[in-house]
């Protein structure tokens, strides 16, 4: 049971991730972009942030960097639609993401990743 913030601009993806995480038993809040996500993170307390990389206003890399400044121990899972951003996935690890997933991933993939990241704590 963890507090999870999902930052994702695509509403359908946001909804599906929220549903899946809730089904796993986590408390989930969502944000539609990086700016919103950073604000929500400052306002609340989260164990884990799942953030998309390609987003309007503030992209995922920037968001991760800011979140890590706010709370260096915050767990972060980066998700991406792949494509041109495959290389960025590599970068996310370097800037502090704990796990990266390429869309479309299954519930199992998500579950494994979340479990792994949270257990490390």
């Amino acid at each position: 049971m963890a507090n999870v913030l999902v930052i994702e601009d695509d509403a359908a993806v946001r909804f599906s991730l929220q549903a899946a995480l809730q089904a796993m038993g986590h408390a989930v809040q969502t944000a539609a972009d990086g700016v919103d996500g950073v604000e929500k993170c400052l306002a609340g307390t989260f164990d884990l942030v799942i953030t998309d990389l390609v987003m309007p206003k503030k992209d995922g890399v920037e968001t991760i960097l800011e979140l890590k400044l706010i709370d260096p121990r915050l767990k972060i899972i980066a998700i991406s639609g792949g494509g041109r951003n495959l290389d960025i996935m590599e970068t996310t690890y370097k800037i502090g993401a704990d796990c990266a997933l390429t869309k479309p991933f299954s519930i199992n993939d998500l579950s494994d990743c979340v479990t792994r990241v949270l257990v490390d704590e």
Binding site: S16, A20, G81, P104, F105, I107
Partner: peptide, 19 residues
């Protein structure tokens, strides 16, 4: 771009179908 969009499209279908 297309793959990225498609992946974003497939993502909710996949997870919601699984759910």
């Amino acid at each position: 771009g297309v793959a990225h969009s498609f992946n974003n499209i497939f993502q909710p279908i996949l997870i919601l179908s699984e759910l």
